[in-house]
């Protein structure tokens, strides 16, 4: 029986690049909505404390922010992984970069999700 994490670590590069492109297209569409929300009112007004908090309290928008967070973290850290693997190769180096980028992704998603969840539930 192959453990689930093994499938993630041993994923073929062609599959990883499809995920990279998929996350890019998804992020472009959702980030456009995120920016348009800022421009739906005067930019400085949209950053007022109450307005920002209201965004987190609006469940569909909060869910969209969570999806953007996941898409951009996966895309960003996979991009960084690709750049670092282009610079240098080696069994240990590649393993460190592969695991490191997955850990960084998880940490960033966890930290961002904490903000979305706590602000959405009014815990601050």
């Amino acid at each position: 029986m192959v453990p689930a994490y093994y499938l993630v670590i041993k994923m073929r590069e062609s599959i990883i690049m499809k995920i990279h492109y998929g996350t890019a297209l998804g992020a472009v569409a959702l980030v456009a909505v995120h920016i348009l929300m800022r421009l739906s009112q005067k930019y400085s007004d949209s950053l007022q404390y109450q307005n920002v908090l209201a965004n987190y309290h609006f469940l569909p928008y909060a869910l969209m922010l969570e999806v953007i967070l996941v898409l951009l973290s996966v895309h960003g850290f996979n991009g960084l992984r690709v750049i670092l693997l282009e610079l240098k190769q080696g069994i240990v180096y590649e393993r460190v970069i592969n695991y490191g980028s997955i850990v960084a992704m998880i940490v960033l998603v966890a930290y961002g999700s904490r903000t979305i969840l706590m602000a959405g539930m009014g815990i601050s």
Binding site: V52, L69, L72, G76, L108, R114
Partner: peptide, 29 residues
């Protein structure tokens, strides 16, 4: 590549920046 690295740095900064809303209105301002 440079724009990708810049955008990743901005994403991390933006996530940190928005997390200050949890510390109240004073911290956000």
């Amino acid at each position: 590549r440079l724009s990708g690295l810049g955008l990743l740095a901005y994403l991390i900064g933006h996530i940190y920046e928005t997390s200050t809303i949890l510390n109240g209105k004073g911290a956000w301002n």
